[in-house]
Nucleic acid binder design. Sequence first.
DNA 1: CTCGTGACTCCCG
DNA 2: TCGGGAGCCACGA
Length: 113
Amino acid sequence: MTTLTPRTFTERASQVILSIPHGKVMSYGLVAAYAGNPRAARQVTRLLHSSSKKKNLPWHRVVNRNGKISLKRFQGYERQRQLLKKEGISFSQDDAIDFKTCLWHPDPDKLFF
DNA sequence: CTCGTGACTCCCG
DNA sequence: TCGGGAGCCACGA
């Protein structure tokens, strides 16, 4: 395999995010944890800001630890919500996603680190 | 090297 | 239960 082992946290986090399949979601903290640093949740947000378009990341599949969308309405809240619904994800009446059925846990064996 | 940033999370009162 | 404050951290300027 020619894929290079991610060196930086950001690269690993990108890989984790890319591993989230259609119809599943992960929290910022969980992404950070799988990327190697449970406390770097905030860095995940920076990654999404800086490279979500560039790297074509499924940014909408990342929500906060309560299963809710962190974006403010004017920031794209509705767009994210719609993208998720389009993937078959449903929201409870308080706009939370059910982690029991939608939370994704990457298979460690498929990650390079 | 220092500093600001940010779609987070945890801890209290 | 809810809100505010503080901790945490990688990365780019």
